[in-house]
Nucleic acid binder design. Structure first.
Lengths: 313, 313
DNA sequence: ATGTCGTTTGCTCATATGAGCATTGGGTAT
DNA sequence: ATACCCAATGCTCATATGAGCAAACGACAT
């Protein structure tokens, strides 16, 4: 960094910099007005930057960490990466911010011709609550219900389809069944099977991420999974779930209980052009990293602390 | 101001803006790297500014208020205007900051071929104390001594000439004599008269400003001015002194006691190519305004609160 | 479908700008 | 004085950029 120029020169630089940067005059105009040569004006403007008189700051007006977003995008080859700065430690605040940001992203990229796929999860509920308008696109539920009743995917589907003004394709069933037989039965239901047929039409999907290690997921707490199931899956290295797709630290997908799940399959996930995950917080970091490694995602909405952990490790 | 774009677009804009503003890539380079057209890149950069994602801040790294400096310069037709931001209310801090800034300005504009003229005053003492180097220019005292001994122009002259490495032209005499006769006598002294002969060679002068209303000046407190003198001059509208030049609100120069003063005359002041005043604080505002109105000054160093008062009224 | 409107995109061409070089000028050592 | 050096200045010419326009597109109503 160049050393500070004298005060008189600082004033001159400030004057020229104001004319140029704040009033969009060209160097040539400024040169004519001040009697300097355009070269001198150009050199003073260079000095304005190098001496720190002109500071150029790039940051979102709405609390986004654009620098981290860009890094995340580059590092993990994502199409969409959005990092929000959440000052509070409160989990509720985090969910709300992530949800509303994901909602903004969704309103931005969705068009009339898209078909939107959704899973359930607290963050997605927050997203549904914050959305206020959407194009008239199709809305498809991608997985059964895993959590307590008030946070079900059904509530999310209800709200989002209402906003879009269309009838949603829903799945009235739990995410995991206790045995494969029961799952087959559910999949045979007309409503469910019609929804399953929509999966291939989905163009944009938004999903929550569940963590298995530490356990922060509706799925792993589900009664249909007994202790032995859980232990076997954990032994296989499962650390994250996305819909009902189970993933290890290396990004490998574990298919052991696919036949008991009522949800979009890995293959179908991969056929969707734009898959976006929304998740944040310390307990989810490992799971997010795993799902990024799997290559399932094209987009991620997370918080700045988590983004830093993802980039740092 | 345009409304905030969606988060995905914000990230894209941030990326492009970073490349352009922080890494100095051309729009064309960015276009090639991102696959966008150069026009699109240009439009996104426009949006970066209009949406507030890129903020361009013009301010001095060293606590100067460049915006006010520029305004002052324009409003009063000055060549040099320097406004420092002084957070403290302490008069000592104010003097120190003004002095050191004036010193910086002086080091900046003085060359070997200049001849520097100085008056006395607290602020100029502070300037002398803060100066650390000067070119080998001539140094001339422009007025007799008005204040208490430790703040005399003599101390200032001693220090500044030592820094410049030259012999100064000094005036060992009070600023005001009690009668014209005495003044004639002083002016006849060889030392004094030699110094007076230098006045016409002075190219850069720095002077303090004294306020007569409210009374904040060494001159008005001088014992050589009795109550009746003071009252007469105040009745004539004197509000400020610069050296021994007395000035009214309208900028008119009052010559009533010129014959009793040992100092550079108005005419000689006006012959100096660069005359700079250093003064600040609420009590000096009116005086500064008066001297600006007189057209004696080419430069002013002051504090931000005073600058705002000067510009505001 | 068809036409219309408003928006987005890329084009042309005149203009602004940067890189690198030659010139100047002032200070310094011989 | 003379030669030398370094910094500051302004030049030429190739390149980057902006203004304004025209084509393409998409949403919507008819």
């Amino acid at each position: 960094m160049a050393q500070t120029p004298g005060p008189g020169r600082q004033v001159q630089i400030a004057h020229i910099a104001t004319q140029h940067y704040l009033q969009n005059k060209t160097r040539i105009e400024i040169a004519n007005e001040t009697g300097l040569s355009r070269f001198k004006v150009g050199r003073l403007l260079d000095e304005a930057v190098s001496s720190g008189i002109v500071r150029i700051d790039i940051q979102s007006p709405s609390g986004m960490r654009l620098d981290l977003s860009v890094q995340l995008k580059d590092r993990f080859g994502l199409m969409h990466a959005v990092v929000v700065d959440v000052p509070s430690d409160s989990d509720d605040v985090l969910q709300a911010r992530l949800g509303s940001t994901a909602g903004d992203l969704l309103s931005e990229i969705l068009t009339d011709n898209d078909v939107l796929g959704l899973t359930s999860g607290r963050t997605l509920s927050a997203m549904a609550r914050s959305l206020s308008s959407l194009p008239k696109c199709g809305v498809v539920q991608l997985a059964g219900v895993a959590g307590p009743i008030q946070e079900t995917g059904l509530e999310i589907m209800r709200r989002i389809s209402a906003i879009a003004g269309v009838r949603p394709w829903t799945i009235y069933s739990p995410l995991v069944m206790s045995d494969a037989q029961a799952a087959v039965g559910v999949r045979r239901q007309p409503d469910t099977s019609q929804t399953f047929e929509q999966f291939s039409r989905v163009t944009v999907a938004v999903g929550a991420i569940g963590s298995w290690q530490p356990e922060n997921s509706q799925m792993i707490k589900n009664r249909a999974l007994d202790t032995s199931d859980r232990e076997k899956l954990l032994a296989r290295g499962v650390v994250a779930e996305f819909g009902a797709t189970l993933i290890t630290d290396t990004g490998e997908v574990i298919h052991d209980i696919d036949d008991r799940c009522i949800a979009i399959s890995e293959k179908q996930w991969r056929a969707i052009p734009t898959v976006i995950a929304v998740a944040g917080g310390p307990t989810k970091t490992r799971a997010i990293r795993a799902i990024l490694a799997s290559g399932l995602l094209h987009g991620l909405v997370t918080d700045s602390a988590t983004a830093e952990r993802l980039l740092g490790g």
